[in-house]
């Protein structure tokens, strides 16, 4: 049996354990944590299996990046939760990760072994992983904005949520910058120039500028919670357009980054 075919089973296990984990968490915390960890680890093991089976990093197609995202999002949320002792982000991050797994289940991959020569570089894995980590943290910030939007301005809930969102954006923006820098160095090594105004590059720059504007806005308006949450929603839409939406735009066929076969 081709081990790669276990993906639908692993995805189902992850979805089930995450759901049960979130239900168990408030009353039986150790059981909840164990189930959440089990679901995340099963996805990690699945990624390793796919990597070994394909003999290449599974970071090439949109489906593969979604799978990594589903694996990294609970980890990113957990880091922030453990570090700053918050529980609620898990209730936003894990359903979001589950949504992305469900998208993968309904859009099965062909698991292509091939990897074009340009992607055979030491920069490939760090470049894509930096972006996916950034997307995970920035999505956690978006999840926070959904919670904060419903909170009363000036309330403790609103302030706490905003603080979580800020920290997530600052961490995510750091990874976004690293992804941008690694991509520029890779492009210079492989194609002779740092920046080619490829549509994907342009939208990556737009995403970076969107969060750069958010960070400056927060410095200038530390108490303006509602506009900050709205800003986060808009920035996340730009991020999604860069990640998925670009493939549906007329300019997609001019990009070397449209992860289609």
């Amino acid at each position: 049996m081709n081990l790669i075919n276990i993906f639908p089973w692993v995805a189902t296990v992850a979805l089930a354990t995450w759901t049960l984990g979130l239900i168990a968490f408030p009353k039986k915390r150790p059981v909840g944590i164990a189930l959440l960890v089990l679901g995340t680890l099963s996805l990690g093991a699945c990624l390793v299996t796919i990597w070994i089976t394909l003999e290449r990093p599974p970071l090439r197609t949109l489906g593969e990046t979604r799978l990594w995202y589903s694996f990294l999002l609970p980890i990113a949320a957990s880091i922030v939760c453990i570090r700053w002792k918050m529980v609620w982000p898990l209730y936003y991050a894990i359903p979001l990760a589950g949504l992305f797994i469900t998208i993968n289940l309904t859009n099965p991959e062909s698991w292509d072994r091939t990897l074009m020569p340009a992607l055979r570089s030491i920069f490939f894995v760090p470049h894509v992983l930096a972006y996916l980590l950034a997307y995970a943290f920035l999505s956690a910030a978006f999840a926070a904005s959904l919670r904060g939007w419903r909170a009363l301005p000036g309330s403790e809930r609103s302030e706490q949520t905003l603080e979580f969102a800020d920290r997530s954006v600052q961490i995510g923006f750091g990874f976004l910058t690293l992804g941008l820098v690694i991509g520029a160095i890779w492009a210079k090594e492989a194609w002779g120039h740092y920046w080619a105004w490829d549509p994907k590059e342009t939208w990556a720059l737009l995403t970076w500028l969107g969060y750069l504007a958010y960070l400056h806005f927060r410095l200038q308006h530390p108490l303006a919670a509602k506009p900050a949450f709205a800003f986060l929603g808009a920035a996340w839409i730009v991020l999604l357009l860069c990640w998925f939406g670009l493939n549906m735009m007329p300019i997609a066929d001019q990009s070397v980054h449209t992860y289609t076969r």
Binding site: W197, P199, L206, L209, M249, P250, I251, Q254
Partner: peptide
């Protein structure tokens, strides 16, 4: 300006 450049075909 980047948005304009990013939606136009090169």
């Amino acid at each position: 300006w980047v948005l304009v450049a990013g939606t136009l075909p090169a």
